Amino acid sequence: MPAWVDLEGAVNVRDLGGLPLEGGGVTASGVLIRADNLQDLTPSDVVTLVDELGVRVVVDLRSHIEVDTEGPGPLTGRVDVHHRSLYPEKGSFSDVMISRADGENPFVRYYLGYLRDRPDSFVGAMRDIASGPGPVVVHCAAGKDRTGMVVALTLAAVGVEREAIIADYALTGERITAIMDRLRSSDLYRPDLEGITDESRMPRAEYLERVLEVIDAEHGGAASWLAAHGFDPAPLYKRLVSAA
């Protein structure tokens, strides 16, 4: 089970080491960390991430509007921050508001939309993770939807067991109240969350199960999808698995 990283200014942070692989073995610890918004990190949090854990690269999946409005965060200048928005940079600026849609579940449609709209950001994030150095932190606002998709694709591409990928996604549910409290405290996200319950934002296993089913059926799996977009998963595997 991934290890929670307890910080004062972020509530959904965990190291993705120790996940079981198809055929045996586990993912390496100290390589990939997922997180929610890093804007409120305290000086002590920065010491934990940079000096103690050795983080040198952050993949920020927030949109440019989110970054411009809230600022780049206290890790700027201490680590390399790569902005990899999963939006086409027009229209909606964040994923805190999920609209209704016919057909697939709205969350499933959003997740598949990330793949459709920004394959370049997925590939860029994979390259960031594969090249390191040190632990790489991937985050968005809640650390649930955009982060969940990048992490799920990464784990699937290196052969993590499907059940473990989905379990990690659902694990964010343990922190959903704290996540929603953080978002509601932000002038940027609060208006879109009026009348929205914590329960409605739970990461449900069936959402990611369906997304991965579609990727398998239409693209032959995560590794094939990445290869079709110009990324060889081999360096990612070497970094996240061979280092274990």
Rank of each mutant, 00 (worst) to 15 (best):
A3Q: 15
L7E: 03
E8P: 04
V13A: 06
G17H: 08
G18L: 06
E22D: 14
E22C: 10
G23D: 11
V26E: 13
A28L: 08
L32A: 07
L32T: 10
R34Q: 09
R34M: 09
L38P: 00
Q39N: 13
D40G: 13
D40Y: 11
T42I: 03
P43T: 02
V46M: 05
V46Q: 05
T48L: 12
T48G: 06
V50K: 01
L53Y: 05
L53G: 04
V58A: 02
V59F: 01
V59P: 01
V59T: 04
L61K: 01
R62N: 03
R62F: 03
R62I: 03
H64S: 13
I65F: 13
V67G: 00
G71E: 02
G71D: 00
G73L: 02
G73Y: 00
V79H: 04
V79T: 02
D80N: 09
V81M: 01
V81D: 00
H82Y: 09
S85T: 08
S85M: 03
E89S: 01
D95M: 13
I98G: 00
I98R: 00
S99V: 14
R100P: 11
R100V: 13
A101Q: 15
E104F: 11
Y110I: 15
L112E: 07
L112C: 06
Y114V: 14
Y114G: 12
Y114T: 15
L115N: 05
R118K: 11
S121C: 07
F122I: 15
V123P: 03
R127E: 15
D128H: 11
A130I: 09
G132K: 06
G132Q: 06
G134Q: 07
H139R: 07
C140I: 06
G143W: 00
M149N: 05
V150R: 01
V150E: 02
V151E: 02
V158W: 06
V158G: 00
V160Q: 00
E161R: 09
A167P: 07
Y169P: 04
L171G: 10
L171M: 14
G173E: 02
E174W: 09
A178K: 11
I179H: 04
M180E: 09
D181I: 11
L183V: 06
R184F: 07
R184D: 04
S185G: 12
D187N: 12
R190I: 07
D192A: 14
D192G: 14
I196G: 05
E199P: 12
R201A: 09
R204D: 12
A205W: 08
Y207Q: 12
Y207K: 08
L208T: 05
R210E: 14
L212M: 08
D216G: 04
A217L: 10
E218W: 08
E218H: 12
E218I: 08
H219T: 08
G220Y: 07
G220P: 10
G221T: 06
A223M: 05
A228E: 13
A228L: 10
D232C: 04
D232K: 04
P233E: 01
Y237I: 08
Y237N: 04
K238N: 11
K238T: 12
K238S: 12
V241A: 00
V241P: 03
